[in-house]
């Protein structure tokens, strides 16, 4: 087994009396592709968003490369933990090129020319080089999401988190985005994906975890999970979605 890049211990998240996460223990290994499934409202997005502190956990510990993530080091950690959002979140007042180069240049990870060269290479790779100087408002959803993915890649992250990356897309552009995610994962990136695309989950996952009512209630390889589910809850879920 590869080294553990992320370790999560007894993660809890509460909004007042509403307990969204009720104690999650989880290890992510390098090169793993973990797909997180679960009914809506189960806490799977919240779980993902707690990892890079888009949501502040109520309690629990998260280690990245064996270093405890704290308020002090979170900014550095986020440079290594990329995230792709459901609603793309391209920065509206910046061009595509500026979206790609802002963080690496501002954080002094790359020189401006170097970052632009890299960005152009990635844009050419996804066939959107001609959009380099466009603003996000002029792009389709699928184009935005593919640019959001390469924006995350610009940082050379160790882990990429995908929070329902295709849920806000029209059916036609879903395929393009999924194949780019596939490609990123196949290239050796460690990824965690919250998704409702069951077919895609089967293809890409090296491990599936199922969250219900704020707890991981089952996990396994895609083969185990989809063909021989252990718990009645997962059996019921699979019956509905397959």
């Amino acid at each position: 087994m590869n080294e553990k890049i992320i370790r999560i211990k007894d993660l809890k998240k509460e909004y007042g009396k509403n307990k969204v996460l009720r104690g999650i223990d989880f290890d992510l290994h390098t090169n793993e592709n973990v797909v997180i499934l679960g009914p809506s409202g189960s806490g799977k997005s919240t779980f993902l968003r707690c990892i890079n502190r888009m949501e502040e956990p109520t309690s629990g510990e998260i280690y990245f490369n064996d270093i405890l993530i704290t308020d002090k080091n979170i900014q550095k950690m986020r440079q290594k933990i990329g995230m792709v959002f459901q609603h793309f979140n391209l920065i509206n007042n910046l061009t595509v090129m500026q979206n790609l180069t802002l963080a690496p240049v501002k954080l002094k990870l790359m020189k401006e020319e170097e970052a632009e060269k890299r960005a152009r290479g990635l844009l050419r790779h996804i066939d959107l080089l001609e959009k380099a100087d466009s603003f996000p408002a002029s792009l389709s959803g699928g184009q935005k999401q593919r640019i959001a993915i390469i924006r995350a890649m610009m940082m050379n992250p160790k882990v990429l988190l995908f929070d329902e990356p295709t849920s806000a897309l029209d059916p036609e552009s879903i395929g393009d985005v999924l194949s780019l995610i596939h490609e990123v994962a196949n290239a050796g990136m460690t990824v965690m994906i919250v998704t409702h695309e069951i077919g895609f989950a089967k293809e890409i996952a090296s491990r599936v975890i199922f969250i219900d009512e704020g707890k991981i209630i089952e996990e396994g390889t895609p083969k185990e999970f989809f063909e021989h589910p252990k718990t009645p809850r997962v059996k019921e879920f699979l019956k509905k979605v397959l």
Binding site: M54, R78, G82, N89, A103, R151, A152
Partner: peptide, 17 residues
């Protein structure tokens, strides 16, 4: 939109940037 701030945070940018 709060997603704009989240995009910056997720990239590791500081609040002031």
């Amino acid at each position: 939109d709060s997603g704009q701030t989240e995009a910056g945070l997720a990239l590791g940018l500081s609040r002031s940037t």
